[in-house]
Simulated assay, not measured.
Amino acid sequence: MSLRNGTKQGTVRIGVLGLGRIAQHMGETLSAMHKDPRYSQLVEPYACATRNDEARARNYADTFGFTKAYGSYEQLLDDPEVDLVYIATPHVFHKDQAIAAMQHGKNVLVEKAFTLNAQQARLVIEESQDTRLLCAEAIWTRYMPSRTLLVQALESGVIGDVVQMHADLSYPLTHKQRLVDPALGGGILLDCGIYALNFGGMIYPNANVTRMLSNVVMSPEGVDRTFQASAVLSNGVLTSSSASMLCASPRLGIIQGTKGYIIVGNINNPEYIDVYAADHTLIQRITPPEQLTGYEYEVAAAAQAVLDGRIECVQMPHSQTIHMLEAMDGLRADWAMRYPDER
């Protein structure tokens, strides 16, 4: 199968738009994938672009083995050899950049949070439906093998019927200007809280939220810096999620059932899944497979979707992206928190 722009059979050429911190991890990932026989024929680290700094783009390209380096986003989008654009800019820019990329005929993989809110997400997804181009949210835990391992453990019935679960992801992050700036979609919710909320969402993707309550501590700048939220799902499971930019946390995910419980070490990149009986006896430790960086799974899923001609990834379909953003919209409505772009 060949891509329509004439790339070699079965290989998806990837362009990285925005070269901040998360893009450094993606560069490392794509470089490692290109050298790994499992992925070397699937993806190619082809192009990268900054907003207006070609020298910085060239340094990135040289570091991670990209062929092309551009000093503007428009140049990358105009390159006919780019098949898939990974958007690595702050949340506030995702909507316009994703739409622009698709209007240039590019498939897109958009770093979480997909957009600022569900309304923006619908506009992006409408463009995907109109152009029939892939548009996927890059929230890496949804694509990892650890998700499948966790779901399999729950479906085995080893801890009985799930009653409640909790997830927290907190780091001291107030030193990062992006996170305290409302104009850039700041706050802990879209950065770390999204993982805590997705912990339950990826286990029960077909369950709806029937009721949600929350508390928040706001910053002087007007963004959320600590929050806790609890929700009752339509399947009867009680979930709670929390995140903070003021402190560190154990980053645990805890799932409690009628016969035992499961503890997931580091919900942001699971290191182990420990299964306990009701008497607190450790039954099993499940260890996810060794990975390159952890980002390779979302890249491989997106690249394969492009080759298959699909407009969404099964691991994180459009409906789930909107569902999670609606939940976060609901929380921010409770907090009377709006970003400048929403006013």
Rank of each mutant, 00 (worst) to 15 (best):
P182M: 03
N206M: 05
L213G: 10
D191S: 15
D274G: 02
S242I: 00
H280D: 15
T226K: 08
T226W: 12
V217Y: 01
F227I: 05
Y272Q: 11
R251S: 05
A248V: 09
L252Q: 08
N235I: 08
T258G: 02
I263F: 06
N198H: 14
S244V: 05
L189F: 09
F227V: 03
A231H: 04
A248N: 15
L179D: 01
M212H: 04
A183M: 06
A243H: 00
I255T: 01
I254G: 00
L238D: 07
R211M: 06
G201N: 15
D274K: 13
I273S: 01
Y204S: 10
P182S: 03
D274L: 07
R225S: 05
R211V: 07
S244Y: 06
Y204P: 05
A277E: 10
V180G: 13
L189Q: 13
V264D: 02
A243P: 02
A248D: 15
S219H: 11
T226P: 02
F199H: 11
A278Q: 13
G187I: 14
Y276V: 06
L190C: 13
P205M: 04
P250V: 01
S240C: 00
S214M: 06
N268K: 12
Y272F: 14
S234I: 09
Y195S: 05
R178F: 14
N215C: 07
I194Y: 13
M218Q: 10
F199G: 04
N206K: 09
D224T: 15
V223K: 09
T239P: 00
G236L: 08
P270A: 02
G265L: 12
A231Y: 04
A243C: 00
Q256S: 12
S242G: 07
T226M: 02
A231V: 12
V237E: 00
S240I: 03
V223L: 10
I188C: 14
I203K: 04
H280I: 04
G222T: 04
S240D: 00
T226I: 10
G193Y: 12
L252K: 08
G265P: 01
A196Q: 05
D279E: 08
N269R: 12
A229Y: 01
G257S: 11
I283D: 05
A196F: 07
G265D: 15
P205N: 03
M245F: 11
A231W: 06
I254V: 15
V264A: 05
S230F: 06
L246R: 10
I262H: 01
G200A: 08
I263C: 08
N208V: 11
V264Q: 04
N266L: 09
I283M: 15
P270E: 03
A183C: 03
G236Q: 07
S244W: 05
Y276N: 04
T239Y: 08
N269K: 11
D181S: 12
Y261D: 00
S240F: 01
I262P: 03
P250K: 02
M202T: 06
T258H: 01
G253H: 07
R251V: 03
